[in-house]
Design a protein around this nucleic acid. Structure first.
Length: 197
DNA sequence: CGTAAGATTTACT
DNA sequence: GTAAATCTTACGA
């Protein structure tokens, strides 16, 4: 199993290929993570925790293994897995995944709050992934189980997944330096990785 | 208290 | 390719 008490930069690549199961809302969906980004808290200009603890981001300052879910652009939700030790505000943004179980539920949720044509786009992008998993602000702070128990659980990937790295997406406003750091990780060649504009 | 900008997605020209 | 949707948080006055 993955040790979530290390910093995001170290945990993020290990989450690729891992299976995440959500039983939120009484329905089960399992995805295989194919794209994530690391955010390092108060030292990272692109992190929501950069300017210190706030009501919205307080979960990131807590212990590892909890969800940080935020609302973005009024309409969307994005989910992070809080890692690191208490007080570091380290987190990993879940950007894209492949649905491996509960596809019927995933399709229903996506079509209910938007449009989706291809299986490839089911969970391709952080907000889409949150929809598929049924996660909203209500689930901010929810504990993530690592032993198969809980509303949301995560299961380590078999090792050997080929990984690529690159700059994070959509953080130009945080400055050119942070925007250049290769803190985005994805599975090489996987079609479910999100498109970058 | 008012305003600006945002870890995005979708629709339209 | 470009813009609109939509609302919360954050920051300045």
């Amino acid at each position: 199993m993955i040790d979530l008490t290390r910093r995001a930069l170290q945990v993020a690549p290990e989450l690729l290929g891992a299976h995440l199961t959500s039983r939120v809302g009484g329905e089960q969906v399992t995805v295989r993570l194919v794209e994530v980004e690391a955010y390092e808290g108060t030292d990272d200009p692109a992190s929501h925790a950069y300017r210190g603890e706030r009501p919205r981001n307080r979960v990131m300052f807590g212990p590892a293994g909890h969800l940080y879910v935020y609302r973005h652009m009024g309409l969307h939700h994005c989910a992070n897995l809080v890692v690191g030790t208490e007080g570091t505000a380290s987190a990993v943004l879940l950007r894209a995944a492949e649905v491996v179980d509960g596809a019927d539920v995933a399709w229903r949720r996506r079509l209910a709050s938007g449009v989706c044509r291809h299986e490839r786009d089911l969970a391709r992008g952080p907000a889409r992934l949150a929809v598929v998993l049924g996660l909203t602000r209500e689930h901010d702070g929810l504990a993530v189980g690592t032993g198969g128990d809980g509303l949301v659980t995560i299961e380590a990937a078999p090792s050997g997944t080929a990984i690529a790295t690159g700059p994070r997406v959509g953080i130009a406003g945080a400055g050119p330096e942070a925007a250049s750091w290769p803190w985005r990780f994805w599975v090489v060649g996987d079609r479910h990785v999100s498109a970058t504009r």
